[in-house]
Amino acid sequence: MPDYGLECKALKASYPGFRLNIDMAVEKGDFVSLIGPSGCGKSTTLSLISGLLEAESGEVLCNGKNVSSLRPYERRMGFVFQDYALFSNMNVGRNISYSPRLHKVPKAEIEKKVSDLLEVCHLSEKARSSVNELSGGQKQRVALARAIASEPDVLLLDEPLSALDAKLRTALRGEVRSICKRFELTTVYVTHDRQEAFALSDRIFLMRDGSIQASGTAEDLYRKPNSLFAASFTGDGSILDAETSRALVRKGDYDDISLPGSGILFFRPEAVTIYENGQERSSFFSTIEMENAKVLGFEYQGDRYLVSFEYNQRRILAYSGHRIEEGWRSLSVRLVDLLAYDKSSDQEAY
């Protein structure tokens, strides 16, 4: 059995019009992300884990020990807030040393710890600065260092970078991961940004309407999402109706795949090949062929173009190496790249 740093077992809370029920397990030392649309209960989950909110029922286990009945200050869980929540009445150094001072750690040890953390967080010159003078990125580093200084068993980060601008966000996220890894912390990182989650996490938990919908590595979630919702939340893609698509199948020589009788078909833009109308193509694999798709527009992404087409009143996304501005094209998707879902499951995701 794996060694879990954090486990939530049927952790429940309810609010008017909203129910939360969380089951999740994080291996010791793992950096995991909790992602999901806004209002799905990500931040509430963190508050329940830390004890800042009281759960109605369920258990929180920290390194195998049940901490459900402990007060937040007894749980040994570091919490980093979106708006930093720094102590404005203390300077940077005293913010960081707050927890060791509370716990009466010997003075020399505190000083050593603070200066180490300041160095790791690139804040060495700021030890005596007022926290009010810091930039957003520096503030968040102080908040992180302060949480780590408390030697938590689990570190909880609630959208820590969302108040920063895009460039700083990208730069800082790598730093956050490497600091957490360096201290071998079991970390739960809440974000609504899937790219951030992809970039940082060992594992990702996808939440929706108060419960975990899917979990796995970034690759798992992107390639083999277990629902249409998971598929669409983890990246771009297009959908087709399985029943009406049967007529579009061109049987390949090499494989023997067939379409499901009903449901929804999902595929990523990279699965789509664009042809000129009437262009010859190989018949090696079985494909769905969409003739005469209308070009709607494109987005230049630096290394390629994301082109959107209209076919049978559906929007189809595909990548292209060059600019396609208007006209009609033929699109081809290999059946092996299709993901099939029940129609009933979550049509509304699209």
């Binding site: 800042l52 937040p72 200050y73 570091g78 929540a85 720094l86 102590f87 404005s88 509370l102």
Partner: peptide, 26 residues
């Protein structure tokens, strides 16, 4: 911002301690 008191709590300060060290000084 009362998240500051929550931060104090997550760092190991009880209610009274958090009030004395973080709320009252501000």
């Amino acid at each position: 911002d009362n998240r500051v008191e929550m931060a104090a709590s997550s760092l190991g300060a009880g209610r009274v301690k958090a009030f004395l060290t973080v709320t009252l000084p501000r």
